[in-house]
């Protein structure tokens, strides 16, 4: 979904904001756009949104920080998450997550120093019938074992 990050271009983003002109309550969709383009929502983009929507930048910051899918700091090229929903939990997702954290040397929510990976928190993703699940850049992988997880990471790094 987003293995490439765009350079911040405020003029371009302004056009995106304008494209939401006719909808009511456009903030969340706009934040999604920013997150998709940049992997996070840069401050200058939040300020731009603030100016265009006449919503204070504090409020925008408050909204962005409320939702776990929005990031206010740069994130890695790849977002990996281990589902911690109940069924996945019962099926050992805790071990998967520990393994991932150990392997990448970061905790959930953090980004590797090379900017390759971010471990994102994932709550139930509605694939419980094939637990445990992981997601990489939005794509769901079912019934994942530790070996598979290792392979998937290698696959990602190659890209």
């Amino acid at each position: 979904m987003m293995s490439q990050r765009e350079k911040i271009n405020l003029e371009k983003f302004e056009l995106i904001i304008d494209s939401f002109q006719n909808i009511k309550g456009p903030l969340i969709p706009i934040l999604h756009e920013a997150e998709n383009m940049y992997g996070y929502i840069p401050i200058e983009v939040q300020n731009l949104i603030s100016k265009k929507l006449k919503i204070s930048n504090a409020e925008i910051n408050g909204v962005a920080s409320f939702y776990s899918m929005f990031h206010t700091n740069p994130t890695g090229l790849h977002h990996i998450g281990v589902c911690t929903g109940t069924t996945c939990h019962l099926n050992g997702s805790g071990k998967l997550l520990k393994h991932l954290e150990h392997k990448l040397g970061i905790r959930e929510g953090e980004t590797t120093s090379d900017g390759q990976f971010t471990i994102v928190p994932v709550k139930c993703i509605g694939n419980c019938d094939a637990a445990p699940n992981i997601t990489i850049d939005g794509k769901v992988y079912n019934a994942v074992t530790i070996t598979q997880l290792d392979e998937l990471i290698i696959e990602c790094s190659d890209k």
Binding site: I23, I28, P29, Y67, S68, F70, P121
Partner: peptide, 8 residues
């Protein structure tokens, strides 16, 4: 109109 959540 479709609106997407954002992880909450």
């Amino acid at each position: 109109e479709i609106r997407l959540g954002a992880g909450a």
